[in-house]
């Protein structure tokens, strides 16, 4: 776990460096906490500490791409949105659809030949890829239930918790090889 410790240290250092700047200029613009619950099904909603994360991130663009008006991090985004294009709404769900592969959404994408962002992630994918990607890189928590606790329905879905299958005694399980 040496690597993890090192990244944690690095994170702390980053926080110290950016803290004064953040407090003054842009951290105040964001909300304190956000309840991310529009997709909650097998898990409880996530109470996202936005203020804490603004303190950690180097720039709003780390998560918000170009929509907050800052220069995007990804050079592929910068090809068009070099200076940052400020959007009216910056919440994840404003752009990332919560029914990504529905027939309507697929038709919308196909019906617009000029659309560049054809492969834009859905809301669930956007959340998880952003959160988990950064948590993995920075050494943040990465377990499912580190962020949202699983409910009873979720336990049943995963055949876990009180729904865990009884261990099979016999070695012959319907064809192992």
């Amino acid at each position: 776990m040496g690597g993890r410790k090192k990244t944690l240290l690095g994170m702390a250092a980053l926080m110290l460096l950016t803290a004064p700047l953040a407090a003054q200029s842009w951290a105040a613009e964001g909300p304190g906490t956000v309840e991310l619950g529009s997709l909650a099904n097998h898990y409880s909603a996530v109470t996202f500490d936005h203020a804490m994360h603004t303190g950690v991130a180097a720039s709003c663009a780390e998560c918000h791409h170009h929509t907050t008006g800052l220069a995007p991090i990804d050079p592929n985004c910068a090809r068009c949105h070099k200076a940052g294009d400020k959007a009216n709404r910056v919440a994840c769900k404003s752009c990332h659809s919560d029914k990504r592969f529905s027939a309507e959404d697929l038709a919308k994408i196909e019906g617009n030949p000029l659309l560049h962002h054809k492969g834009k992630l859905g809301l669930k994918g956007a959340y998880h890829q952003k959160c988990l990607g950064c948590h993995t890189a920075m050494g943040g928590p990465t377990g499912c239930q580190d962020c949202h606790t699983r409910n009873d329905k979720g336990d049943a879905f995963f055949h876990s918790g009180k729904y865990t299958p009884a261990p099979k005694a016999s070695a012959e399980h319907g064809g192992g090889h």
Partner: peptide, 9 residues
């Protein structure tokens, strides 16, 4: 899939 590993289309 939480990660949208898979893209359907």
């Amino acid at each position: 899939c939480p990660q949208e590993v898979m893209t359907f289309g």
